[in-house]
Design a binder for these strands. Structure first.
Lengths: 222, 222
DNA sequence: GTTATCTAATCTGTATACAATCAACGTGTT
DNA sequence: AACACGTTGATTGTATACAGATTAGATAAC
């Protein structure tokens, strides 16, 4: 694997999982030494991360990890509304229905596990990732898929902060399962509306979780 | 201005306006000599263009200008539907109404000019660009704005190929004007629906123009 | 005639050295 | 004391050299 890819992956993961929190300033020489690559591939990694919206350049100081605020969260949900309702519609028209029927069963089973604490939550997150994958594959549209992938990156960062409780997870599972059902039935309108509902509720849940965080810390989320 | 920016701009423009048509293979040394920059900034430019979706890397051969097909056009319109309907809705809720009232007047006046041939078409394209700008500003959402900017890049490439006639331009102007009117009135639902209609019609017009091109050339659009 | 392998040549990736730009700080002057 | 200017230090941007990988072509063997 290329050195620039290694640097990109490492920094990407560290930003997503909070090892490099918002506002962290990254110098070129400093990071190239830490990651064991020279400045050239490191700069390539920086540029890609700037393109992803995870870093931004501050002239003279270095690149800085993007700050997440309550504002950011709302903006991302607005974008998701546009992208995911459209994706759900298209998936309902084009998906292999068998895939989504099986996915529905998996959701049905997972709902028993969610009560079981942390390990159940992991199962649910994996299942959600599978759902996202299935949608992207079903829409058969590389441009839409790329846009979805980008927004999911930012959501992953937010989700890490806005940890939620089993009750909320179960709600989310039920909402998602309805979307899956609509797609399996080829019902585009229902799939879109169920997605709208889910995003609305999810936004509320995440905002609530973020507010809980804000009570402890400062204005920023991470 | 930085050498990498110069290289990026130059290549970007050349791809958009067709000087570098689809399928053109670009070598690093070749292009760095032509543009008068060294390989390091040129590679940065290449990477940005790959990120934009205008180039893709073909291992061993170099980077290649992305091919536009009828398929691509449909995919972009599907993405636009998701993004622009949402943008129109949000703009209707948040825009400074005076801005869109003035824009409405400009459309009203431009409609007289469109009959006048090529110069009138230019005015209309400028006005459309102004409309896009106004939407992006009104939504006040950097993530949505970035997604819109990217899709518009690809549309610019397509529009250059799918040159259309004054009658079709006038249709488009009327459709867009209705969107502007809805936003000026703060009517989010109408803005979204008018956008849907406009995109549907625009897709038909562009597809027709693309098909006309295909009769002469090959399978690819450019 | 086809296939396999070796070689040569080009292209990609990385490191490093050099140059230019920018910011912060201190010094001097009004 | 405040402001302007210069100097120093660090940081960013560019060029180039070197190393590794990959492809195409040629030659030879089956």
């Amino acid at each position: 694997m290329r050195a620039s890819d290694r640097a990109y992956r490492k920094l990407f993961d560290e930003i997503i999982d909070g090892a490099l929190p918002s506002g962290t300033v990254l110098g070129e020489v400093e990071q190239s030494e830490r990651l064991g690559v020279s400045r050239t591939p490191l700069r390539e990694a920086f540029n890609r991360l700037v393109g992803d919206g995870l870093l931004h350049a501050e002239p003279g100081r270095g690149v800085v990890v993007t700050t997440l605020t309550a504002e950011t969260v709302s903006e991302l949900y607005e974008l998701r509304e546009g992208l995911e309702e459209q994706a759900a519609r298209l998936a309902a028209q084009r998906a292999d229905r068998e895939v989504f029927k099986k996915l529905w069963e998996e959701f049905e089973q997972s709902k028993n596990l969610i009560d079981g604490g942390d390990i159940g939550a992991m199962v649910f997150y994996d299942l959600n990732a599978k759902f996202d994958e299935a949608i992207s594959a079903a829409v058969q549209n590389p441009y839409l898929a790329a846009a979805l992938k980008n927004v999911r990156t930012h959501m992953a960062r937010i989700r890490r902060i806005a940890r939620t409780n089993p009750k909320r997870l179960l709600e989310a599972a039920n909402e998602t399962q309805l979307i899956v059902e609509a797609i399996a039935d080829g019902d585009a309108a229902l799939a879109a509306h169920a997605t709208h509902v889910h995003l609305h509720k999810s936004h509320s849940r995440v905002s609530a979780a973020v507010r809980e965080q804000l009570e402890n810390t400062n204005q920023e989320v991470a």
